[in-house]
């Protein structure tokens, strides 16, 4: 579904000061952003590897390792953001990546 403004609220570690947010124009862009977070982390750990590859289970473990993560998706009909939890994010990630594979 295109054009649904999405805000990702995230607390990477137990430190409350690490709380941050990111906003995207659509759910798909938000999911790409979450993948990008993990990929950037992998590159920080292995800076010399030109190409990286990972399973979705690695991405799931990364998301489960965050202290907190949730999403707010704008709904035009009610002119408000709907909240979604971590499990929803993982399910949407699977669907999103599956679509990319099928193209």
């Amino acid at each position: 579904m295109a054009g649904r403004h999405t805000i990702i609220l995230m607390q990477p570690s137990q430190n409350r000061a690490s709380r941050t947010f990111m906003d995207y124009n659509s759910i798909n862009h938000a999911l790409d952003g979450i993948c990008g977070l993990y990929e950037r982390k992998i590159r920080d750990i292995n800076p010399m590897i030109p190409n990286i590859t990972y399973d979705i289970s690695d991405l799931y473990n990364f998301i489960d390792g965050l202290a907190d993560i949730s999403a707010l998706v704008y709904d035009h009909s009610i002119q408000a953001f709907l909240p979604y939890d971590r499990q929803w994010i993982k399910q949407k990630l699977f669907q999103h990546l599956k679509k990319l594979a099928q193209r």
């Binding site: 941050t20 906003d23 938000a30 990319l100 594979a101 193209r103």
Partner: peptide, 21 residues
């Protein structure tokens, strides 16, 4: 498989900010 150009994925959309509660 299909290639997907993820140019915008690494920049966090419109930017990011930090907040405390």
């Amino acid at each position: 498989s299909n290639r997907f150009n993820n140019r915008g994925g690494f920049q966090a959309g419109r930017g990011r900010g930090q907040f405390q509660s």
